[in-house]
């Protein structure tokens, strides 16, 4: 039996870790990412119940050792997301993948409105609203709300599930497979290929899981 509140926390932490792993690994960010990955490995018993487990574990394993060679990690980041000349860089933004990359302003506007509905505004760290890290961080926020609600207000928790599902389908699930595929083809992407696989698997299976929870009928108490 799997406790839903713990599951929501695990999902939120995973979204946060994957999102953070796809930001530039500067001196401030990298140690906390490594620490988060090491801590998250303790969730393996719960995570093993879900089909995302194998790529999730590979990703955490790789992130937990990411501080061993920070220089090569930064090179891989720049090569993969910013300047790789062959086939173009893997742009980690939704606008580059949906509607043939034409609706950049529209997508960003739509996302900012979505964030604002939850009382959030962009932090001004430089990433646009459609950056993968921002979208996944928003998913992490929704999962946090859900985890808190399971203990006190089930109806609110169910509403959170509905919002997570709607956002996931409308945004990350729409473009992440294409992004992960491009990442998989990128030469010398190193750890980012593993992160891309984990992101793809996690979003795909989380979408299924949310669908399952949405349609699940309550059993006998």
């Amino acid at each position: 039996m799997l406790p839903l509140a713990a599951l929501a926390r695990l999902r939120g932490r995973t979204y946060r870790a994957i999102g953070a792993a796809l930001l530039y690994p500067d001196d401030r960010r990298l140690p906390s990412l490594v620490e988060l990955a090491r801590e998250m490995r303790r969730d393996r018993v719960l995570a093993a119940s879900f089909a995302f487990y194998l790529p999730w574990w590979r990703c955490l394993d790789a992130l937990a050792k990411a501080d061993a060679e920070p220089g090569s990690l930064r090179s891989a980041y720049v090569r993969t997301f910013l300047v790789e000349p062959i086939g173009g860089p893997c742009v980690p933004q939704e606008s580059a993948y949906v509607d043939g990359g034409k609706g950049m302003g529209e997508v960003i506007g739509e996302l900012e409105r979505e964030y604002a509905l939850s009382g959030l505004t962009m932090a001004g760290t430089g990433e646009p609203a459609d950056h993968i890290a921002v979208e996944l961080d928003f998913m992490a926020f929704l999962c946090g709300e859900e985890a808190a609600a399971w203990g006190s207000d089930e109806r609110e928790a169910e509403r959170c599930l509905g919002r997570e599902r709607a956002f996931l389908i409308a945004h990350p699930a729409r473009w992440l497979p294409a992004f992960a595929e491009r990442l998989g083809r990128a030469p010398r992407a190193g750890i980012y290929r593993i992160v891309g696989e984990a992101a793809h698997a996690f979003v795909q299976h989380d979408r299924d899981l949310l669908g399952l929870l949405a349609t699940a009928s309550p059993g006998t108490p």
Partner: peptide, 20 residues
């Protein structure tokens, strides 16, 4: 290529989900 089989919440009160 993998999908969760439809299942049901075993107990809403204890907030538990059966093995997927």
């Amino acid at each position: 290529q993998v999908r969760a089989r439809p299942t049901r919440l075993r107990s809403r009160r204890s907030l538990l989900l059966a093995d997927v």
